[in-house]
């Protein structure tokens, strides 16, 4: 409504929250866990974007990553293993006005939840998805996950993981309708925040894979990358990341990449060393499923009744001649 009264009223009272207002429980993650960095970045995002806590939902599956909703003072749904996506999609279809975030892990998303993952990309609902990729099943104490590196010795792969690791980026980019794919690392918090903010701003299925360290079960895995900034490839563009001067001093390996270039994005995604950090693909034009289906209109008893009547009207009932007796089978 554009009335003068409306504007006057809205401008009167605008609520701002501090970062601490979004802090739910005290995190029980290990010291040095990359989830802390993601939590800090997301809380910062909520504060900077002024998200109303009662209109924000964090949906998760099972895993260390999926403890996330407990630590945010917003609405949350800690669901069952692998089913973060269908839960989030349901929330979105019923209430498209809410800000829905999905926290999922490498096992939760790429293993048991793989089927939901593929189709969630196709639906392109307006969700912000963070894949907390620590390359191991951490909560259940060290089993190999689809993204664990070859040779990784775990409880389920005592002689070393045999299979090659799955690349979540190429999988997402390979599905039709992918509209936003980005990758961050938990030791570059500035870029992490930037990427998550852009993912939130993108209207559509924003898939952000965050490579995080597990200090408990894979403490040395990313040492080479931590010590040699040249092995991180920062993707820059005016529509993508624009790192500050201090970051560029340290991370000199940068490349300009147009987020609208899908083929190039796929090429970059396939290269695992150096690790690409930035926005690989961003296409704002792809329609969202909830818009196409007109989701969110409030369901009233009249509408439900009308729907039921319409369905039942498809059947014809012939009145029986003999009252009180059921027709005999022929």
């Amino acid at each position: 409504m554009g009335s003068a009264l409306h504007h006057c009223v809205i401008r009167l009272h605008e609520e701002h929250h501090a970062l601490e207002d979004y802090q739910g429980g005290v995190p029980r993650w290990c010291n040095g866990c990359g989830d802390n960095a993601i939590l800090a970045a997301v809380q910062r995002l909520c504060r900077d974007e002024d998200l109303a806590p009662e209109r924000t939902v964090f949906v998760s599956g099972i895993g260390c990553s999926s403890r996330f909703p407990h630590y945010m003072r917003t609405y949350g749904f800690h669901g069952i293993h692998g089913r973060a996506f269908p839960l989030a999609e349901g929330v979105k279809m019923a209430r498209p006005d809410l800000h829905v975030f999905v926290n999922t892990g490498d096992g939760d998303c790429c293993s048991i939840g793989a089927a939901h993952w593929i189709h969630a990309i196709r639906y392109n609902m307006n969700l912000t998805v963070i894949l907390h990729d620590n390359h191991v099943y951490g909560l259940t104490k060290k089993q190999a996950s689809p993204t664990s590196p070859t040779g990784f010795k775990s409880n389920t792969t005592p002689r070393g993981a045999v299979l090659q690791a799955l690349n979540p980026l190429t999988v997402t980019l390979g599905v039709q309708n992918a509209s936003f794919v980005a990758q961050g690392v938990d030791w570059m918090p500035e870029q992490l925040y930037d990427i998550i903010r852009r993912a939130y701003r993108h209207r559509g299925f924003s898939f952000v894979r965050i490579i995080q360290r597990c200090p408990e079960f894979l403490p040395k895995m990313f040492e080479p990358w931590l010590h040699d900034p040249g092995r991180t490839l920062v993707l820059t563009h005016e529509n993508g990341l624009q790192p500050s001067a201090e970051v560029s001093r340290i991370y000199r390996n940068q490349r300009e990449h147009d987020p609208m270039d899908l083929d190039r994005a796929r090429e970059i995604a396939s290269a695992e060393d150096p690790i690409p950090v930035g926005i690989l693909y961003h296409n704002p034009e792809i329609p969202c499923y909830e818009d196409l289906r007109g989701a969110g209109s409030p369901r009233s008893p009249e509408r439900t009744r009308a729907g039921l009547e319409a369905e039942l009207d498809k059947y014809t009932i012939w009145p029986q001649e003999d009252q009180g007796k059921l027709p005999q089978a022929a």
Binding site: A18, L19, G32, A37, Q43, M188, L192, E246
Partner: peptide
């Protein structure tokens, strides 16, 4: 400390929470 690059991992807080603290961006 290069605050901007801090990933909020709580290690330094564990060692001495009075010397090290988080700013408003939790860094």
């Amino acid at each position: 400390i290069e605050t901007v690059r801090c990933p909020s991992c709580n290690e330094c807080q564990q060692i001495n929470p009075r010397m090290f603290a988080y700013n408003e961006n939790k860094q």
